[in-house]
Amino acid sequence: MIEIQNLTRIYGTTAVVKDVSLTVETGQIAALVGTSGSGKTTLLRMINRLVEPSAGRVLIDGKDTAEIEPHLLRRQIGYAIQGHGLFPHRTVAQNISTVPRLLGWTQDQHRARVDELLELFQMEPADFRDRMPHELSGGQQQRVGVARALAARPDLLLMDEPFGALDPVIRAKAQQDLRDIQRQLGTTLIIVTHDMEEAVTLGDRIAVMDKGELLQYGPPSEILTTPATSFVSDLIGTGDRPFRLLSLTPVAEIIAEGQAEGAEIPREASLRDALAECLWSGRDRLPVEGGGIVTLDSLRAQAAPTARAAE
């Protein structure tokens, strides 16, 4: 569990982060969203003490991070940034094993770990191990960057716009993979992004920041249905709101009894996908794989914030 308590950072006379407190439960993903200059990156960098807080503290599983030597603290926390920051003079394997080697793992241990991670990220170890970063595609570089951050099995992973440099198609895949891997490993993840879509896709909790202040912190559905300020609603974008809301829930959660014609939809597809399928094929009910149906009416109900509030 990560507890951020009254964290403040002042540069000169301006407070870049003002008295922010929030808690991230173990195994959850928290997304810090805001425009540039909102203080979200500074907040993230205070967690691994790349920036020292002016006031307040950060507790990781109850332990105050101020009591740990900064470089030792950072070795326990994974860190991945936009543009990956891979060491251009080291091979993929050497890059990934950076922290394990700093921690004094044996050669066998870190070699095995490199192969394990490469496989996890769907990169053939024999093929990729000895390549130099400049011999990889953008998407591969980004995956190696994340693999490197996960190498020493950190319980906490910090990411600063990790997908910022990727094109939209690769980005969607990378987000999906990250989510899968995070669920598999149970790592707590704090991710900074300026993209509300990305925050909704990935976050179990979303923290919206503006001008150094935390405006709202809650699950995506809450942010979407009851935005705390006009700034938050602007950030969501009113036009996309119902669709974003639908994208949060899988079909499996609203299956009703019944029969329907046509192609089946997977249970893990989102309600948004189901709505799109209804509209596209002109049907008002879809059969779900493994039995049951979703109806257009139930989708419509789910898309309205009042329905959520009533739950």
Partner: peptide, 15 residues
């Protein structure tokens, strides 16, 4: 040098 590489090095806990 690339600020990102420096940032990554610091972030991974290199002294």
């Amino acid at each position: 040098q690339s600020p990102q590489v420096q940032e990554a090095a610091r972030g991974m806990g290199l002294t």
